[in-house]
């Protein structure tokens, strides 16, 4: 297991850089470190949009686009959806994503 670092910008602007392991999801890294706004109600099963993040422009290509199951979930929060929206539970961390930066999307 390799130690990675990922950065969340919480809704109020607080920047939180947390340690993560390759193989974890971005949601697990966020929730496990108490990042505000990463709620993950459904436990990471791509079914609730409570771990919604905006991927930093520089990282978009490396992270990739949502598949259609995830895109459907994101459509349910179209009021806050952007082109850079992803569900953190669907982003599997790898060495390539070391340094990843995302902003936490507003929920309720």
């Amino acid at each position: 297991m390799s130690a990675l670092e990922v950065t969340f910008v919480e809704e109020d602007g607080t920047v939180r850089t947390v340690a993560a392991d390759a193989g974890q999801t971005l949601m697990e890294a966020g929730k496990g470190n108490g990042v505000v706004g990463i709620l993950a109600d459904c436990g990471g099963s791509c079914a609730c949009a409570t771990c919604h993040v905006y991927v930093d422009a520089d990282w978009l290509e490396a992270v990739g686009a949502p598949d259609d199951v995830e895109a459907e979930m994101l459509d349910m929060v179209s009021d806050v959806r952007r082109d850079t929206s992803r569900l953190a539970c669907q982003i599997r961390l790898t060495d390539r994503l070391n340094g990843l930066r995302v902003a936490v999307a507003p929920y309720a």
């Binding site: 709620l39 109600d41 459904c42 436990g43 099963s45 791509c46 079914a47 609730c48 949009a49 409570t50 979930m73 349910m76 929060v77 179209s78 009021d79 806050v80 929920y107 309720a108």
Partner: peptide
């Protein structure tokens, strides 16, 4: 635009597990 916000499945850690 905020359809996903309804609470028909509850929410928090007890959110309906069979929702999908």
């Amino acid at each position: 635009s905020n359809l996903g916000r309804h609470v028909a499945f509850g929410g928090g850690p007890h959110r309906c597990i069979g929702l999908s």
